[in-house]
Amino acid sequence: MRLLTHNFLASNMKGVSTGYPLGLEVVKSTIKEVELNADFLRGILPKLDWRALAAATSAAGYPDLLPAEQPSEAEFFAEGAAEFEDSPIRRLHRALLEIHIDEGTLVCPESGRTFPIQKGVPNMILHEDEVRA
């Protein structure tokens, strides 16, 4: 599971109102590099929950990758920013698409219910008594 997925995944237990953002505890994560697509990142930026992403990036073992508050669009998309190793857009790309959570746990922020992540796959299956009527 990558952190873009974490940014839209929520818990849906009975009695929980939003179930978002899920807490993240990471036992093992890896980085797998993929090509950066600046147009994609520009499109997705306004739809992200930045705080959830920053918290998840920290939890994944990269506390310095993203600032706590979202940088301005100008900072992300400055001329040539995609070429620089350390630019905000490169960091965002890494956070969203290159960090893979292999082993760990997702935690419902309201109920505290935990969902294990094994071999990269979060198990969001609910027990019968947890399902909404």
Binding site: L4, N7, L9, A10, N12, L48, M124, R132
Partner: peptide
């Protein structure tokens, strides 16, 4: 039982 938030998908 899926719960996907926001407009990302």
């Amino acid at each position: 039982n899926l719960n996907l938030k926001g407009l990302l998908v």
